[in-house]
């Protein structure tokens, strides 16, 4: 990916210049790369549990690997094989998987503002638009870092997730119960770690509390997968009602996204 910093020409890259207008400093770049790779490796690690569960649900090794390569969204994949493994119908499995995947479309609304991709790159970006790549991209202070984080995380997760899915599928029953190894808990911990850095504002904390309440209260009542989608309501309610809490509505420093909006033709 070529990251052409605006206003880069005419003034040589020098350290200490305004960070929004220069390339990344090496230390920043290194930090983003390190974060992206560790997210990729950690996420890939629980691809092992998906591979094992996929084969256990009755899919072939090839079908299990195909899900990781083509569907490539952990929550949807786990939901799909979970419902199949529990004896659910194919359409219920597909519906739940798709409902869980709706959040990726919502993530795309955010990442498209950071990436500004067209053509083939947009088609590729869409495939790697998942929880992890979005979280790393949106968690960066500036757009160039966000772009780097998105691509490196997306590709790293893709590679490790598929590799580990294959290993998990091959190991299959040899691994035994994935729960014995705490792999289900690893998934919960990974989502916690991705959520953590985004809880800096009071609005975010309020959204989290409301979302957890919605998910837990509706989980026993609604089809698997729907409660997570319903948490969108938490973001809508808090997002629309917040604002004047800190300062005039025109300038809200909590709104990190202003950084990303620079250079966007309005």
């Amino acid at each position: 990916m070529s990251t052409t910093a605006p206003d880069a020409e005419g003034e040589g890259p020098r350290e200490g210049a305004h960070p929004a207008y220069t390339g990344m400093e090496p230390s920043t770049r290194k930090a983003v790369l390190r974060q992206s790779l560790s997210v990729g490796i950690a996420t890939g690690a629980y691809g092992i549990s998906f591979g094992a569960l996929g084969v256990a649900s009755g899919l072939s090794i090839l079908q299990t690997v195909a899900l990781s390569a083509l569907l490539f969204s952990g929550g949807s994949q786990f939901a799909l094989v979970g419902i199949l493994g529990a004896g659910g119908t194919g359409s219920a499995a597909v519906a739940t998987s798709t409902l869980l995947g709706v959040r990726n479309g919502l993530y795309g609304l955010q990442t498209s503002r950071i990436l500004h991709v067209r053509g083939l790159r947009r088609l590729l970006a869409a495939q790697v638009t998942i929880d992890e790549s979005t979280a790393v991209a949106v968690g960066q202070e500036h757009r160039a870092e966000g772009r780097l984080g998105f691509w490196v995380t997306g590709i790293a997760v893709y590679v490790f997730w598929n590799l580990m899915t294959l290993i998990g599928a091959l190991a299959g029953n040899a691994l035994g119960d994935p729960q014995r190894w705490g792999l289900d808990a690893a998934a919960a911990a990974a989502f916690t770690a991705l959520l953590w850095p985004r809880l800096r504002s009071r609005d975010a904390a309020a959204t989290m509390v409301l979302a957890v309440a919605i998910a837990l209260l509706t989980s026993p009542l609604l089809p698997v997968g729907v409660p997570v989608i319903l948490t969108v309501l938490a973001a809508v309610v808090i997002g629309l009602s917040g604002g004047g809490r800190h300062e005039p509505p025109t300038e809200d420093p909590e709104l990190d996204d202003d950084e990303f909006r620079e250079g966007v033709p309005s």
């Binding site: 929550g75 959040r103 919502l106 993530y107 609304l109 955010q110 929880d131 979005t134 979280a135 949106v138 919960a188 989502f191 916690t192 991705l194 959520l195 985004r198 809880l199 609005d203 975010a204 959204t207 989290m208 509390v209 409301l210 979302a211 957890v212 919605i214 998910a215 837990l216 989980s219 409660p227 997570v228 319903l230 948490t231 969108v232 309501l233 938490a234 973001a235 809508v236 808090i238 997002g239 629309l240 917040g242 604002g243 509505p249 025109t250 809200d252 709104l255 990190d256 996204d257």
Partner: peptide
């Protein structure tokens, strides 16, 4: 600003739901 704030909070809500 409002839509932008909702979009910023969206992954927070979904990730929190997933954790739960």
């Amino acid at each position: 600003p409002r839509r932008s704030r909702v979009l910023t909070l969206l992954p927070v809500a979904l990730l929190a739901g997933l954790v739960a």
